[in-house]
């Protein structure tokens, strides 16, 4: 048991650190840029006429299903100071998140006899699709200052979508009969048929092009995170499992 924990924590530290490098280069600068716009006028991303016009429509600021994303920061609340401290906390939370993903991969790998690096990478890809792409299709990555629907609705939808998509991946990979494999389509589609909670108007304080670049950067960075985790977890898992330290069912 403790060996699996070591695999997950080591993978988390390695994968999370690699991810931090990529993220710091591509993603974090865009978040920092968006923060400069926070508190400014809302720009709608829906209507091309107003994107450049930088106009805050009155209806954007109405509480009717639209949360004003720009003014959520209370200056008295604690947050890491800019620079090294913020980088450090982001690195720590990246490592923690990567550890969470590593545990999920370990849970899957327990059921895969003769785990190969290729299968490890395949599960990295499936994890990426279930835990990043599927939720991000409905709820695109948000920049600070963006308009959004109610937080709890979005969190619930995110969790249900990730759980449903992950179940779909498990059916696809482990399903012995085609009907079970095919059921993954239902698991993948259902959350999107139900629909993600959206604000009435899509927009925010940051320019739309900044947001588009940001979305692309997060897709890339998370792909690198998941693929590297698939490889690292599979590598360590094989090392530990081959020593026969736990009753790992090999055929």
């Amino acid at each position: 048991m403790s060996k699996i924990f070591i695999v997950a924590f080591l993978s988390g530290i390695m994968g999370g650190s690699l991810y931090s490098l990529v993220q710091n280069y591509r993603v974090v600068p865009l978040i920092a840029q968006a923060e400069l716009f926070e508190g400014g006028d809302i720009v709608s991303y829906d209507d091309p006429d107003t994107v450049e016009g930088h106009v805050a429509h009155q209806h954007l600021l109405n509480p009717d299903g639209v949360e004003e994303g720009a003014n959520h920061h209370d200056p008295s609340e604690w947050k890491p100071s800019q620079g090294a401290q913020r980088l450090f906390f982001t690195w720590v939370s990246n490592v923690v998140l990567a550890t969470a993903w590593s545990f999920l991969l370990c849970g899957i790998f327990l059921f895969i006899p003769k785990l190969s690096m290729r299968v490890g990478m395949l599960w990295g890809l499936l994890g990426y699709l279930a835990f990043f792409v599927a939720p991000a299709i409905g709820l695109p990555p948000e920049l600070p200052g963006m308009l959004a629907a109610d937080l709890e609705d979005r969190q619930l939808w995110w969790l249900l979508t990730a759980a449903s998509s992950f179940s779909g991946m498990i059916c696809l990979y482990f399903g012995k009969h085609w009907t079970i494999r095919f059921s993954m389509v239902g698991f993948l589609i259902l959350p999107h048929v139900f629909g993600a909670p959206h604000p009435r108007v899509q927009g925010g304080t940051a320019p739309e092009t900044l947001w588009k670049n940001y979305v692309a950067a997060t897709y890339g960075a998370n792909l690198i995170l998941w693929l590297s985790l698939g490889l690292i977890v599979a590598f360590l898992f094989r090392k530990v499992a081959s020593e026969g330290v736990w009753s790992y069912a090999r055929d």
Binding site: V27, I31, P80, R86, A100, W101, L139, T218
Partner: peptide, 30 residues
């Protein structure tokens, strides 16, 4: 995995949110 993910990505206290701010945004967590 679920417990750690909820702690880093979904926990409500503002301090937890601010510490993991960039991680949450980059992982597309709400």
């Amino acid at each position: 995995g679920l417990a750690i993910m909820l702690a880093v990505g979904f926990s409500a206290p503002i301090e937890a949110h601010n510490a993991a701010h960039d991680t949450r945004h980059a992982a597309a967590f709400p």
